[in-house]
Amino acid sequence: MASKTENKPSSDRLVLNEEALKKAKSSLDDGAVTPHNDGPWVKDIIDLLNGSLATELVCVLRYKRHHYMADGLASPAIAEEFLVHAQEEQGHADRIAERITQLGGEPDFNPATLLERSHADYNDSNDLKEMIRANLIAERVAIEAYSQMVDLIGDKDPTTRRLVEEILNDEQEHAEELKTWLAL
Rank of each mutant, 00 (worst) to 15 (best):
K8E: 15
A79K: 00
K22Y: 07
V141C: 04
L114F: 09
A183S: 15
V33S: 13
V58L: 02
P35E: 12
A134S: 08
A77S: 08
D30E: 15
R161L: 07
T113L: 03
H67G: 00
H174P: 09
S11G: 07
M149A: 13
D71I: 11
V164E: 06
V33M: 12
I46R: 13
A74L: 13
V58Y: 06
L178M: 12
R13K: 09
I46Y: 07
V141P: 02
A54E: 02
E166T: 03
V58S: 06
A74C: 10
I153L: 13
T34H: 03
L163A: 03
V15P: 01
K22P: 00
I167W: 00
R13D: 04
K179T: 04
R65I: 13
L28R: 04
C59S: 15
Q148K: 07
R95Q: 14
T55Q: 00
D30A: 10
H119K: 08
D121R: 08
R62G: 06
N123M: 08
N135T: 01
E171T: 01
L83G: 12
A142P: 01
S3G: 15
A70Y: 01
N37C: 01
L178A: 09
A145M: 06
E89P: 01
R117Y: 02
V42R: 15
S118H: 02
E177S: 13
E173D: 12
L115A: 10
E144L: 05
D155N: 15
H36E: 15
D170W: 03
Y146A: 05
T160I: 15
D44A: 08
H119Y: 02
D29I: 08
N37Q: 11
E116T: 14
A77C: 04
S10H: 12
G39S: 14
D47K: 12
T113W: 04
L136V: 02
A74D: 11
L114V: 05
P158G: 09
L83S: 14
A54L: 13
D124F: 07
L48W: 04
A70V: 10
L49D: 05
L53V: 05
N50Y: 04
L14I: 10
D71A: 11
Q172V: 01
R99H: 06
N169R: 06
T5P: 01
S26T: 11
A97S: 12
V150Y: 02
M69I: 04
A134P: 02
L103T: 12
G154W: 00
K22L: 08
K22H: 11
N7M: 10
H36N: 09
E176G: 07
N126S: 11
D170S: 11
Y63P: 04
T159R: 09
